[in-house]
Nucleic acid binder design. Structure first.
Length: 487
RNA sequence: GGCCCCAUCGUCUAGUGGUUAGGACAUCGGCCUCUCACGCCGGUAACCGGGGUUCAAGUCCCCGUGGGGUCGCCA
């Protein structure tokens, strides 16, 4: 691309606090964050709370918490402050007022006294006369010289724009040209002085020194009027980069109808932040054939050249696989991180405090099995509580004929010097060889004794995690059941 | 409908004029094996259509077609 981004960019993520943090929004935030981190720039968080109908403080908290959980830290914004604050638009109203006045003074904007009702009526009558026509504000108040004592909005004056079209170079899509006849005298300030999206964004990006605006392609249509606004103010517009959209599996706009779309839902399902970010990063961006990335790798490898232009469809199965890959690989989720992320899921099962050293060893035995943290917690809990027997498992595998092998196993384990997995396996294999038994004969009885279930990690690795004392205790219990002397 | 954008397996994508069109997920076989997994091996599967340009086009151009975005005192 001819337009090179600045060396030390100032980028921003500007969500509106009207609900949860949408994964599409996370992807936008991620790409901005990656670029800032890679280039040593600044990632600014700004809250666009000008929709007073829908904005709530709870949503602000949810969004901030989600970003923190993901690890997308912001250099300036709510709670951390910064030199360009405040970072809530509703606290910047005087700024918008000031710039609006400047535009009015220059003849680039004007007060419009038309009421919503009048506009709605005009829209309606046009629709009746010519259903195909598109309503545009006719500029009724453009040249009014009087200043009635009535509510007004401030509108941009397209008449003051000389050029026929706006052309800009998008970092992803290349040169984009939009004819100005598509624009109209759009509203800058509402009658209550609160700015509309396009005006608020421009004034904030300008005053916050944002030099690269990276956002979803659904905003591409906002770029020309925003550029017109920068020009009317006599300043150079930032560079723009639009991202292809993430659509639903059916190709529609992604919404809650299509499953989980809020980050917190993935947190609850037991996906790690790294996995969420990984999946989202590979959506519209690629790096050769590599699929799995750590956050550090993403920072290192992100570039605009490898951003895609076409929209894609969200694929929950692929996402689930990425989540699993991250849990399997200690490089991506260390034992410490695994343990930390697993904690809430253990707590939910009443295991809020377990021995950390044992937990970490246990994690090693479920990494290749637990597809989510929730799943892992379920698979791991037997280590930390008395055995709960599955009736069918007990009936099928703890029968009188397994008493002897189980007892031999107990004796064998009792005689070991150390109790690590390798040594256990070696000793048991020797036992099997000497008696002419096969592993498959004793594996299920041992497994059911140790876990109560038919499905579990490998017998040797479980013994090593449980330790000699607990292992023998559970095996003895198995023997008792097999003998029929216990139920 | 106007304007803007996009177009490689079902999905995410590699590919920057010359490839048996590669990888991943999903799917289907098989192997490994103490259960379940992991892992490994292999199969099915794609350049939207039509015109150009070129010795040569998935790659460049044009036109269709299809899909998406957007047309508020929402963001």
């Amino acid at each position: 691309m001819a337009n090179n981004p600045a060396a030390s960019p100032r980028v921003r993520f500007a969500p509106s606090p009207t609900g949860y943090l949408h994964i599409g929004g996370v992807r936008t935030a991620l790409f901005n964050w990656l670029w800032a981190r890679k280039m040593g720039g600044s990632f600014v968080l700004r809250i666009e709370d000008t929709d007073q109908e829908r904005s709530t403080p709870e949503s602000v908290k949810v969004i901030l918490d989600s970003l923190r959980w993901l690890g997308l830290d912001w250099d300036e914004g709510p709670e951390v402050g910064g030199a360009h604050g405040p970072y809530f638009q509703m606290q910047r109203l005087s700024l918008y007022e000031k710039y609006a006045q400047e535009l009015i003074d220059k003849g680039k904007a004007y007060r419009c006294y038309c009421t919503k009702e009048e506009l709605a009526a005009a829209r309606e009558s046009l629709r009746k006369d010519n259903p195909k026509a598109q309503f545009r504000y006719p500029g009724t108040c453009r040249h009014r010289k009087d200043r009635p004592d009535a509510p007004y909005v401030v509108r941009f004056n397209m008449e003051a724009v000389q050029r026929e079209a706006v052309t800009y170079r998008d970092l992803v899509f290349g040169e984009i040209t939009t004819p100005n006849r598509e624009q109209q005298d759009f509203v800058l300030l509402r009658s209550d002085g609160v700015p509309l999206y396009n005006f608020g964004v421009v004034i904030d990006d300008l005053t916050m020194g944002i030099d690269l605006v990276m956002r979803g392609r659904d905003h591409m249509v906002n770029t020309p009027p925003q550029i017109l606004l920068y020009e009317a103010l006599g300043v150079k517009p930032p560079t723009f980069a639009h991202l292809p959209m993430m659509l639903s599996p059916k190709g529609e706009k992604l919404s809650k109808r299509h499953g989980a779309v809020s980050v917190s839902e993935y947190e609850k399902m037991g996906y790690t932040p790294g996995a969420v970010l990984n999946y989202l990063a590979r959506f519209g961006w690629s790096c050769g054939d590599q699929e799995i990335f750590s956050l550090e790798e993403l920072v290192d490898k992100f570039s605009f050249e490898s951003l895609n232009r076409s929209d894609g469809r969200f694929d929950a199965k692929k996402f689930a696989d990425v989540a699993f890959e991250h849990l399997k690989e200690p490089r991506l989720t260390s034992d410490a991180d695994y343990s930390r992320h697993l904690h809430p899921f253990m707590a939910a099962r009443g295991l809020g405090s377990v021995d950390e050293a044992m937990l970490r060893k246990a994690i090693g035995t479920v990494r290749a099995r637990g597809r989510t943290l929730a799943d892992a917690a379920e698979r791991i809990e037997f280590y930390f509580r008395p055995v709960v027997f599955d009736d069918k498992a007990k009936e099928k595998f703890l029968t009188p004929d397994v008493v002897e092998p189980l007892q031999a196993m107990i004796a064998c384990l009792s005689s070991l010097d150390s109790f690590d997995e390798g040594e256990i396996e070696q000793a048991i294999q020797q036992l099997l060889a000497s008696r002419g038994w096969e592993m498959k004969e004793i594996a299920q009885p041992a497994r059911v004794s140790l876990t109560g279930q038919k499905v579990s990690p490998g017998v040797f690795e479980m013994l090593a995690v449980l330790g000699r004392e607990e292992s023998i205790r559970r095996l003895r219990q198995g023997v008792q059941i097999a003998r029929g002397t216990a139920s």
